[in-house]
């Protein structure tokens, strides 16, 4: 039982200095702080481009049925990226759009991804007929990895939700949720915060009641902060000129809180820094995943300011910005 002491120990200093991947000062000084990829943990796919069956007022990339600035990704393109991602050690896959279920081969693409690792689809849940839900359930069942359905719902009443997401979407979304729950899924319901902080508890309670009404009694809920870009600028307001990430702000800041330190977005038209900046040409890093992984991201856009304040708001799991060993 005796244990010999032969300390070969890696111990962090009490201040727990984070290996700083931000370059605060350079000569000549970079105009914006830069963040390098620490590890490619999350691989995002703009699988449905900017095509959506809805036209939400707060959509941060202004997706719509007629927004074709980004087109659907080919199943083969996704598969190639999945192959490459394995050697890069990716931890999870995210599929977004637009509306992913506008893609004819979405279920097959998810099956492909689930052979590699856990996959999450961000959906409005309005395009989920029974047949597709059953196919999804089979795909989820067949994999050792989790398939997460992340469903956007932006209100606890039709009035509150439909004002943002469009006429009739509250009922259609809840019907989608009901089918998912019926098939054994526990969808993560995401909602963009459109209320004051002190109302959060009561709004969450109301969400739980509404969801219980369609049989979802173990609701998983996630509140997202509003991003003041895209359609959202006209719904509420854009950013103030001062709302930017500066070099000074990065001193003592843990850059691993920012999604671009651990993620990239693959689209039908090249690889981007993150899913938030799809509309910004400056965020297009390279044609290939390997190149885009090697290239640091400049925090040039005002949306970066929201990321800065709220942390990795796009991931399923909470991030606490713990120091890395």
């Amino acid at each position: 039982m005796g244990v010999a002491a032969a300390p070969v120990v890696r111990r962090l200093p009490p201040s727990q200095a984070v290996p700083n991947s931000v370059v605060p000062h350079q000569s000549p000084p970079a105009p914006h702080p830069r963040v390098s990829l620490r590890a490619l943990d999350q691989l995002w796919f703009q699988v449905a481009g900017t095509v959506c069956n809805l036209r939400c007022h707060h959509c941060f990339i202004s997706c719509a049925p007629d927004n074709h600035s980004f087109w659907f990704m080919e199943r083969e393109t996704v598969r190639e990226a999945l192959e490459q991602s394995a050697s890069l050690g990716v931890k999870e896959y995210y599929f977004t759009g637009g509306e992913p279920f506008m893609h004819r081969e979405m279920v097959e693409i998810l099956e492909d991804a689930l052979a590699f690792g856990p996959a999450t689809v961000l959906t409005n849940a309005t395009l989920l007929p029974e047949r597709r839900v059953r196919a999804l359930a089979r795909a989820a069942e067949a994999s050792r990895y989790s398939l997460e359905l992340r469903v956007s719902l932006d209100g606890v009443t039709p009035e509150m939700n439909d004002a943002i997401r469009g006429e009739g979407t509250f009922a259609r979304c809840l019907q989608g949720v009901e089918r998912l729950v019926g098939a054994g899924f526990l969808p993560i319901i995401t909602t963009m915060q459109s209320w004051n902080d002190d109302e959060t508890e009561s709004i969450l309670r109301a969400f739980r009641e509404v969801l219980a009404g369609v049989g979802y009694t173990r609701a998983r809920l996630k509140i997202l902060p509003p991003l003041r870009i895209g359609e959202e600028t006209s719904r509420s307001r854009g950013y103030d000129a001062a709302e930017r990430v500066t070099h000074d702000m990065m001193v003592d800041y843990d850059p691993s809180l920012l999604l671009c330190s651990s993620a990239r977005l693959v689209t039908a038209n090249g690889v981007y820094a993150c899913p938030i900046l799809l509309d910004y040409p400056s965020a297009r890093l390279a044609d290939s995943l390997a190149e885009a992984a090697a290239r640091p991201v400049e925090l040039a856009e005002q949306a970066c300011y929201t990321c800065y304040l709220s942390g990795a708001l796009c991931s399923n799991m909470p991030t606490s910005g713990e120091v890395h060993l």
């Binding site: 050690g89 990716v90 120091v323």
Partner: peptide
């Protein structure tokens, strides 16, 4: 995890290739 003290490694959320790299 070896890289982060508070990293969760769940069975259904951790790819084999990721563990191999670690």
């Amino acid at each position: 995890s070896p890289r982060q003290r508070n990293e969760f490694l769940w069975e259904s959320a951790t790819p084999t290739h990721f563990l191999t790299k670690l």
